[in-house]
Amino acid sequence: MADLLSVENLSAGYGRAVVLSDVAFRLGEGEALAVLGRNGVGKTTLLDTLVGVTRRFTGSIALGGREVGTLAPETRAGLGVGWVPQERNIFRSLSVQENLTAVARPGPWTLDRVFRLFPRLKERRQQSGASLSGGEQQMLAIGRALATNPRLLLLDEPTEGLAPIIVQELLAALTRLLREEKLAAIIVEQHAQKILPITDRALILERGRIVHQSDSAALLADPMPLERFLGVTGR
C-alpha cells in the first residue's frame, strides 16, 4: 500500500533554533501513529512542521506522494492536513457552528456528522466559542479539523488538562475515528497508555530525534522503551 505520509531527513525549528533533526517516518492510509516523548523533546514542533507553521531547514514531507514541505499552511490544509493544535485555538468570536462552517470543505464530514460525533456541540451550536468549557473547546477543535475533511488528522495532546470524565468521552470519540472510520492520524501524547491501544504504530522522540519506532501493540507488550525514554512504567 502506498504511503499517505512520508517524512525524510526532516529538521526544523523556530527562528534559528533547531528543534527537530533528521526525523524520518512513514504513515500508511488509515494508519494511526502515536508520537511519544517527554516535555520539550519536539513533539509539538513535529506537528507544527507538518502543518507548516514552523521553519523547516532541511528534509522532505510528502503527502500522497506530493511534496508539501515548501507549501503554505493554507495550501497544505487544502491538500488534506487537518490540525488540532495544543492550545485548541478555536475562534472565540465565532459561534460553535460558525467555527465549523468557516473552514468546512466538502466531503463525508458534514456538520451533522460532526454533531453526531459530539452531541454537546450541537446543543451549544449558537453559543460563542468563548463560552465553551475546556473539554467542549477540545471537541470543537477536533470537529473543526474534521469539517475540513482531512486525509490526515494531526492531534496535539488532545486530553491535556481535561477532567477524567471528559477524557473518557474524547477517547471514545477518537477510538471511533481511528478504529471504525480508519482516519489516518498522528497523535502527540505524554500519556502513552491512553493512546497506544487506539494507534497502530508509535515513535518516541528524544531531544528532537526519533529514538524508537515500533508497532503500538509491541510497545504495550514490552514497555521497556517507555520506561527508558519516558521514565514511566507500563502500568
Binding site: 493554507e74 490544509a77 465565532l94 473552514v103 470543505r105 473543526r144
Partner: peptide, 11 residues
Amino acid sequence: EDADIAAAYGV
C-alpha cells in the same frame, strides 16, 4: 481573530 490558525485550516 487568528490569521495563522485560520491559514492552517485552509483560509
